[in-house]
Amino acid sequence: MSKIISFATQKGGSGKSTLALVLAAPLATEYGLKIAILDCDYQQSIVKTRNQIDAPSLAAMQQADPSAKYPYDVFALPLDKIFDFTDNPENDYDLIIIDVPGRADGDDVFNALTGCDAVIVPLVSDQLDRASTAEFMTILASIKKAANDAGLPFDYFGLATKRIAGRREEKEMDEYIDGLSLSRFNSFLSNRVAYSRASTLHSLLTPGFRAYAGGTKESSDEIRRVCDELIERLDLPNHKAASVAIATETDERGVSSTTVTE
């Protein structure tokens, strides 16, 4: 059964669509998850990235390798069609990511969030964003209580994005969220230009694309830590861990790990 998550906030410019883009390709290519993104945001940033930026690159790749394809699926959907998609047994994804509009003032957004197993809120440490973000997470805390009372799965987490090391506001944000007893990831993403160049075709963990986007080993390490924590918190299948275990076993027997893993 698919796990359903949303990257959501009631503040624009927090990077929720970027967060979905940064994580989806690595989760698909390196961790082996079957993923769909439902782009329900009015700006359609993820759909535009695929159609306007990545489609020409894929066409060029297919000239050399006709089997080349996107690592995961993207669908443009209105909010009122989300449950038609998620309730369809033919959509057998490991993970469905819903990118909702950047607001929390309507029943359509609220209903979409209640249909998720988890909502992940980008935490931006600017003082003007802090109270609004905490207010939104408090709303999610009330949804969690209602879901728990009904025996339904629901959780929520803050995830620091655009983090600047050593900045006083980052520490204040952590203390503010912790002081309200709101859940947050231990991992985070820094304020890196490479993340703004995330693709629906290429993973930022791929060395060639990472270099093209201006990423570094440190950016790859950040992404992996977030992916690992996301998989652990949502109890998603970790095909990467299974592959590593198989490779270790075959090495001990003196058999090529590549042959066995395939």
Rank of each mutant, 00 (worst) to 15 (best):
I139V: 09
G13C: 09
P237E: 06
A118F: 03
A198T: 04
F110A: 12
F85G: 02
S17L: 04
E232R: 11
G158A: 09
L152T: 05
F75L: 09
R103V: 11
T9Q: 13
A147G: 00
M1D: 04
A150C: 03
I177R: 00
G214A: 08
D54N: 03
D126W: 14
K145D: 08
G208K: 14
A245K: 13
P89F: 05
N111W: 08
P207M: 00
I120C: 03
A60F: 08
T200K: 05
T250D: 12
A165W: 12
C227V: 01
D251W: 14
Y195P: 04
A131L: 15
S199T: 04
V124Q: 15
S2G: 03
Q52D: 11
V121A: 04
N91P: 01
N111T: 15
G179L: 11
R233H: 10
T259M: 08
Q44N: 13
I98C: 05
L182D: 02
S203K: 02
S183V: 06
D92R: 06
D41E: 08
L123E: 07
D39H: 09
T138N: 11
R184H: 05
V226A: 02
A141Y: 05
G13M: 14
L182N: 02
K145P: 03
K48I: 10
D221W: 11
P66W: 03
I139E: 05
A213R: 07
E262T: 12
V193C: 10
Q63G: 07
D107N: 14
D54T: 02
Y212E: 09
E169P: 05
P78S: 10
E169T: 11
N191M: 15
D221T: 14
D155M: 01
I177Q: 05
E252D: 15
L205A: 02
M1S: 10
L113E: 00
K81S: 05
K145L: 00
S57W: 10
V255I: 15
A28L: 04
P89G: 01
F85V: 08
K171N: 13
L128I: 15
Q127L: 15
D251E: 15
L95F: 00
T86D: 04
L236F: 01
E169C: 12
D84W: 06
L189P: 01
L230H: 00
S196C: 12
I96D: 00
A55C: 06
K16L: 12
S125F: 12
A131H: 10
E30H: 09
F157W: 11
G215L: 10
T248L: 15
D155A: 08
V255F: 08
D80A: 10
E30T: 05
N91E: 04
D94L: 01
